[in-house]
């Protein structure tokens, strides 16, 4: 609660001084364990903000809403470390100017919420560096290990079963801060590159496109998995791709704004384990 009060005061200052035009945070949701994204423009509204361990959603995707930052005014946003990494990636990919983003950083352990010191994405590089150091190459998740142990045929069957539930609502895409394309490849219909049908082939096509497009860009905030209305364990795919990228290129996305997108850049000493 102390953290929440500190931040409400800070938000009031930011808005009443005109430093920012908007603050993106959280408010109570429809049940005690839910939080909703909140957009406020006046200091009077600051008391509607909540900040506790239930504030999980990575809100950074709202920053690339068409037109939001085009007036060059600043926006403040509540972000966990993963969200700060998203800002760095969006800046590295020229989707936003990180100087326009005032970060209200926080993290939580259990039910305790703590503030993260810093104002701009660049202020958090030490913290993000330590996250990279402490990030396990393999997660301690039972299901992940089970899938790893499977033969390719078993793994294919596993994902076939999981993807059979996909209804192509694209909640995973819409919830992802990295899926900012104005027109997604699956919505491109002249020509129609990818089937719109949600049958086995169509569902594989979509989920494979998603997996590859997020490789080296995903910060594992979990927005996609939480958004999926049929609970497909999308995190397993993202985790596997992240593991590949770190093993092949020692690339941990979102450390800073000058990091080159790993799959859109080339270095002479890149490993060539399969090309030649």
């Amino acid at each position: 609660m102390i953290t929440q009060e500190q931040y409400r005061t800070r938000v009031k200052e930011l808005l009443s001084s005109g430093t920012v035009k908007m603050v993106i945070g959280y408010k109570p949701g429809s049940t005690p364990d839910r939080r909703r994204p909140l957009f406020i423009r006046t200091a009077e509204e600051a008391n509607r903000l909540v900040l506790d361990s239930a504030c999980i959603t990575n809100l950074s995707g709202y920053l690339v809403t068409e037109g939001l930052l085009s007036d060059e005014k600043k926006v403040a946003i509540f972000l966990r470390p993963e969200g700060i990494r998203s800002i760095n990636i969006l800046a590295a990919e020229s989707q936003l100017n990180a100087d326009q983003i005032i970060i209200l950083g926080f993290d939580s352990t259990g039910s305790v919420v703590k503030t993260l010191d810093g104002t701009h994405a660049g202020d958090f590089s030490e913290l993000l560096g330590s996250i990279k150091q402490n990030s396990p190459v393999k997660p301690s998740e039972v299901l992940f290990e089970q899938v790893e142990q499977m033969t390719p045929a078993e793994r294919f069957a596993f994902w076939q079963e999981e993807f059979s539930r996909c209804i192509k609502c694209y909640a995973c895409r819409q919830a992802c801060p990295m899926c900012y394309c104005r027109r997604c490849i699956v919505d491109s219909n002249q020509p129609q590159w990818v089937n719109t049908s949600s049958h086995t082939l169509g569902n594989f096509e979509w989920n494979i496109v998603r997996a590859f497009h997020l490789a080296g860009r995903c910060v594992e905030c979990g927005n996609c998995g939480r958004a999926c209305p049929v609970n497909i364990p999308l995190r397993l795919i993202n985790r596997r791709m992240a593991q590949e990228v770190i093993e092949a290129f020692d690339h941990f996305p979102g450390l800073n704004q000058t990091q080159e997108p790993v799959l859109a850049s080339f270095k002479k000493d890149d490993s060539e384990t399969f090309i030649l």
Partner: peptide, 13 residues
């Protein structure tokens, strides 16, 4: 609807 992310979860379910 400011926070609506434009997925089809509601309509498809």
């Amino acid at each position: 609807s400011m926070r609506c992310i434009g997925c089809a979860s509601c309509t498809f379910l």
